[in-house]
């Protein structure tokens, strides 16, 4: 059986602070929210937004196998 996985991505200042940009982690059998994942990763910044599969989600979004989860610092484009 293929192990259920999540792809994680960090950007900009968060990527530099953490020293990684992308990694794959196993998704366990217990329900996991985006906020709980953020806590597990030790991402303590309060100003992050979360995107799952390239769409903004609420912190209590439940993650599913194969999801791409991105943690985004405040946007500064335009």
């Amino acid at each position: 059986m293929v192990e259920p996985l999540l792809t994680l991505r960090l950007f900009a200042s968060l990527r530099e602070e953490q020293g990684w940009s992308e990694r794959t982690v196993p998704l366990g059998p217990a329900p996991l929210t985006a906020a709980a994942l953020q806590q597990q990763l030790g991402l303590t910044r309060r100003d992050l937004r979360i995107a799952v599969n390239q769409r903004f989600v609420a912190a209590d979004q439940l993650l599913r196998a194969g999801d791409e989860v991105a943690f985004l610092p405040p946007i500064t484009g335009g």
Partner: peptide, 11 residues
């Protein structure tokens, strides 16, 4: 909207 919701970051 794009300044707040389109993921760009300036260094």
């Amino acid at each position: 909207r794009l300044k707040h919701d389109a993921p760009f970051w300036k260094k």
